[in-house]
Design a protein around this nucleic acid. Sequence first.
DNA 1: ATTACTACTCACCGAGTAA
DNA 2: TTTACTCGGTGAGTAGTAA
Lengths: 233, 233
Amino acid sequence: MKSVGVDAQSWKVFFTLFKLAEMGASRRTVKVSTEYLAERMALSQQTASRHLIQLEKKDWIKRTITPEGCLIRITESGVGELKKLYSSLQAVFEAAYPLSVTLEGVLFTGLGEGAYYITRDGYRKQFIEKLGFDPYPGTLNLKLTADYDVKTRAELESYPAIEVQGFKGETRTFGPVRCYPVIINNKVKGAVVAAIRSHYDSSVIEVIAPYFLRDKLKLKDGHKVKIEILTLP
Amino acid sequence: MKSVGVDAQSWKVFFTLFKLAEMGASRRTVKVSTEYLAERMALSQQTASRHLIQLEKKDWIKRTITPEGCLIRITESGVGELKKLYSSLQAVFEAAYPLSVTLEGVLFTGLGEGAYYITRDGYRKQFIEKLGFDPYPGTLNLKLTADYDVKTRAELESYPAIEVQGFKGETRTFGPVRCYPVIINNKVKGAVVAAIRSHYDSSVIEVIAPYFLRDKLKLKDGHKVKIEILTLP
DNA sequence: ATTACTACTCACCGAGTAA
DNA sequence: TTTACTCGGTGAGTAGTAA
């Protein structure tokens, strides 16, 4: 998920940076006394002063002290920080779909059918091309138990997905598959694969990844697995 | 100046609200454990929990606690708060002009010409109509001393202004005037009036207001006066 | 008038832990 | 597992004041 690069400690001075931007300091040099800034932000003059010092240390503003106040201009990197916040908000308000949704399911052992399907060359080539990885020959089956997770799984159908096309094999045809890039347990990148006509019901999801996830993440049947599904830009 | 309704004290929990929005909580109910939120924000689980409690108290989120975590949905007022921040940033990045600029000048007594001009009916009617107030028959003359202020005054020429049209009097013609709504000393609304061909040089500005400002703000010659010029939407 | 240092206070954060 | 309490330490904000 795209994220603002401000850490927990910087929130306060970041807010000051934002206030300076409101005063136009991102496009021009503005004259602001610490007293005036303090009044604007409902802070003490001393705190305003300290914030300016910290902003300068972070190289988010350029400051020139004059007898009548400070001449302040937000630097490029300062503007960059504000832009990060802006584009995150833009995504929140303007995007057609959420940037990501999270699901949780319980690991179980399937019938091994998943491995058969994803190793078909007609699929595999498309996985490599469209997902950017060669999947380990096997799927991680997750059972969705909570209402919330099943409902979220259902919503997924209406989000855009990476479409893997069906193809004709020697003896039968293989249907199209929808894929969603995911992050498994906040660590490993992979994808949820959902056959348009799944052999499981909608309370099950199948996850693929370039690794044998049971080893990589030390997973066993019955473990809870959290996946973050990244919807597409 | 347009401003975000979040003060410095609420900024921290507000930032948590923003993070929840990034997770999609502004458009749908999301399941988030305090542990997970804490990890996402580089905070402790306890702090995340407290922030959620505070957000709920402010009625910015609706929260349902379940054994597997919290079901969280940002309320309308919560979304409203985020939107305020969003539109402020939009103004910062997308607007052609700064929302406001501030100037500082030293009060001096002029020749009284200002009063003569602004009391001409041809001007006065337009002030009432376009500025929304009937100006006190006199102007406040401010001398701009610092380089910064003179430079800012010059930039003003290129910003959009309220145009007061010239007219023909009985014996002479009166030229067009550009007006900028201002806030004087952070308290009183008024306007800067600038004749297209001013009788003063560009290091002087003339301010009008519905009141006798020298009384209203207890001003005397030599006092510094701060004005915030609001550029137009 | 400014900015910003030194104390001091207090609120916030996080560890431990209960439910 | 969860959430969220108490409590103690720390860092952020303010007052006083120097430069």
